[in-house]
Amino acid sequence: MAVPSLTHVFNVYVMISVPSGMGPGNEHASLTVLNGESGYVETADGSTRLEITSISDWMELGAGKTTATVDARMSSKGPGDLNLDMHYLGKFSLSDGTNEVFGGTPGSSFDFNEEYLYVTPRIWSRSSQFAWVNDAVFLSVGRAKCLETGTQAEISYKIYKVG
């Protein structure tokens, strides 16, 4: 059986405030909500850029867990009628590296494939240029870095079309 091919189609860049006190849930709840402040989606070749208009991640960070569950929604708009809406589910490891970035350690980072950060985006578009996304399956790998101020983090994804 052949392995499905992956074609790099989009890059996503999101800035978030590093939440104070973000950490594992407790006996009452495991839900942590992160709201993105700004960002953009661009085609892999950089020819088209869409600004993110809204993004939030309702992740689960359970006490004693080794991974966090990502459940994010995002909308973006470009020139004319261009748009992309995404819902992505996935996991990231709760390791020393990810805890440093999301805990606000200035300058900390991890690159693609250095930590376990994978999501499966479902993507929709109402524009003719991106209508093809409505019938495709995607896989994404992520990286993150905490800015030198320790108050913001940049999360980036490479999105691949499967098949």
Rank of each mutant, 00 (worst) to 15 (best):
M1W: 04
A2I: 03
S5I: 03
S5R: 09
L6Y: 14
H8L: 15
V9K: 08
V12A: 08
Y13F: 13
Y13C: 10
Y13D: 09
V14C: 06
V14A: 00
V14F: 01
V14Y: 00
I16C: 10
S17I: 02
V18S: 08
V18R: 07
V18L: 06
P19T: 01
S20T: 05
P24T: 09
P24R: 09
G25E: 02
N26P: 07
N26E: 03
E27N: 07
E27G: 09
E27H: 04
H28T: 06
L31E: 07
L31F: 05
L31S: 02
T32P: 00
T32N: 15
L34Y: 04
N35A: 06
G36K: 04
G36I: 04
G36Q: 01
G36W: 04
G36D: 02
E37M: 15
S38Y: 07
Y40H: 04
E42K: 06
A44N: 03
A44H: 06
D45E: 06
G46W: 12
R49A: 05
R49G: 05
I55S: 03
W58R: 04
E60C: 02
L61T: 07
L61R: 11
G62E: 14
A63D: 13
A63K: 09
G64S: 08
T66S: 15
T66C: 09
T69I: 13
T69A: 10
T69Q: 11
D71E: 06
A72C: 13
S75E: 11
S76R: 07
S76A: 15
K77A: 09
G78H: 05
P79M: 05
G80Q: 13
G80H: 13
L82I: 00
L82M: 13
L84I: 05
L84H: 03
L84E: 02
D85T: 08
D85A: 01
Y88M: 11
S93E: 04
S93G: 15
L94I: 14
S95A: 05
S95C: 01
D96L: 09
D96Y: 12
D96V: 13
D96P: 12
G97F: 08
T98E: 06
N99W: 12
N99V: 14
N99A: 14
N99I: 09
E100V: 02
F102H: 10
F102Y: 13
G103C: 09
P106R: 07
P106S: 10
D111Q: 13
D111M: 11
D111N: 12
E114C: 02
E115S: 07
Y116V: 05
P121N: 11
R122C: 01
R122Y: 11
I123M: 15
W124A: 11
S125L: 01
R126T: 14
R126I: 09
S128C: 00
Q129V: 09
A131P: 05
A131L: 12
A136Q: 14
A136L: 00
V137T: 14
V137R: 13
L139Y: 01
S140G: 11
G142W: 07
G142Q: 07
R143A: 10
A144M: 13
K145M: 12
K145G: 05
L147W: 05
L147T: 04
T149I: 04
G150I: 04
G150E: 10
T151A: 15
T151N: 13
Q152G: 06
A153M: 02
Y157M: 08
K161C: 06
K161H: 10
